[in-house]
Each structure stands twice: as C-alpha cells, then as structure tokens.
C-alpha cells in the first residue's frame, strides 16, 4: 500500500474512529518530554537564582548580557511563529505555493535568530564569559544553549519539510508532515520568551 493509498485508507476508514492521528500524538508526547526537560533546567536556574542574594554573582558582576539585541531577536522568533502558522493555514486551503513562501520565510527567520545568538555568544566568550565562569556562566550557556540546539533541530526539520513541499508532497488533504513540524516550531517559539525573561531580565 503506497503513501497516498494509505492516507486515503486512514481518511475513510480509520480517521472518524480515532481521536488523533499517530503523528500528532507522537509529536505531543515528544513535546511533553521536551517540556519536562526544560522544566528541569528552569528548576535548576530557580535554585541558583533565588538562592543568590545578588544576581549575577559578585564574581561575574561585570558581565552584561545583550538584552537589547536579544529582545529584537525575540521579535524575530515570534515573527517566525506567525509565518509558520500562516503556512499551515495556506496548506489547509491547498495553497501550495503560499506554503512554500511561508516556510521559506520561517526558515530564514530561524536562521537569523541562530546567527544573532551565535554572534552574541562569540562576543561573550571573547569577553571572558564562558561555560566555566561559575554558576552564572553554566546556567546561562546550558539553558540558552539547549534552546538554541532545539531551534537548530527545528530549522533542519523545517528544511526537510520545505524540500518535500517543493517536491509537491503536500496537499489540502495530506499535510500532517507540515502540521507536526509547525507544532514543534511553535514549541520552540513559545518557550523562548519565557527563557528570555528568566535569564536576561530577572
């Protein structure tokens, strides 16, 4: 049974009896695990942050995190959340060319986010603020680094979906691949403002 036949079978026979498709359920469970992973990291941050009388610790008092440029970067990532949602809306209405454009814009915004984050990290490392710069450096690089790694994975996933879109593999009746990728993208977008406020502003 090829993919189209399988999709057709699911649509006519199985879909009305199944509350949610396997792919959607899988990505939801994956996101549950991801949320718990980041909850652990945030819990660690809370212990160190609330356990310190002064933050940053006195030994790292001269470190200035790039609040402004990262704030702008936050807007870039939030904008990518809007574009991926528009792409999903487009394919639901079988507008494949629009999906291609929105996915391209989303990927571009994700890459801009990663490049800006990377350049700011290089600047901080040159300033002497590294992973081994005490609790402050460890918490910052692990928390923000894990998110950046997730954005990188999301960009790679999006590129794979984009390639399949160019090949015409999605339609108004078959777009679950776009949808699960969009759900994952939404996760990394929604998570970032929380991390930004916790690590950069508080």
């Amino acid at each position: 049974m090829n993919e189209l036949e399988h999709t057709s079978y699911e649509r006519t026979e199985g879909a009305s009896h199944r509350p949610i498709s396997n792919a959607r359920l899988a990505v939801l469970v994956l996101l549950g695990a991801e949320i718990m992973f980041f909850a652990g990291l945030i819990g660690t941050f809370l212990v160190f942050r609330l356990g310190s009388v002064t933050w940053p610790p006195p030994s790292q008092a001269d470190v200035r995190l790039p609040i402004g440029i990262t704030g702008l970067n936050t807007i870039v990532l939030l904008l990518s959340g809007y574009t991926v949602f528009q792409g999903l809306r487009a394919i639901r209405q079988d507008r494949q060319r629009e999906l291609r454009n929105w996915l391209f814009a989303t990927g571009l915004l994700g890459i801009i986010f990663l490049v800006v984050q990377g350049s700011e990290w290089v600047r901080l490392v040159h300033h002497g603020f590294t992973l081994s710069s005490g609790v402050y450096g460890s918490v910052f690089y692990v928390l923000i680094g894990c998110h950046a790694l997730h954005v990188l994975v999301a960009v790679l996933w999006l590129l794979a979906v984009f390639a399949k879109t160019v090949a015409g593999r999605f339609s108004g009746n078959h777009y679950v691949g776009v949808e699960v990728c969009a759900i994952y993208w939404a996760f990394v977008v929604v998570l970032w403002p929380l991390l930004y406020v916790l690590v950069y502003l508080i």
């Binding site: 469970v29 949320i35 809370l46």
Partner: peptide, 27 residues
C-alpha cells in the same frame, strides 16, 4: 535564600507533570 530557591524549584517541578498531562489531554 537557598531554601527559597529549593522551595520554588520543587513547587515548579511538582506542578509541571500535571500541566503537561493537562495540556496533552486537553489538546
């Protein structure tokens, strides 16, 4: 302060499984 840090961290982590399962179940 370290007690306050642990307290809020424990409360946060304790609530998180319920929030996650609630979100998935609700979805």
């Amino acid at each position: 302060p370290i007690v306050q840090g642990f307290k809020w961290s424990i409360l946060f982590l304790m609530a998180m499984p319920y929030i996650v399962s609630g979100l998935i179940g609700g979805g």
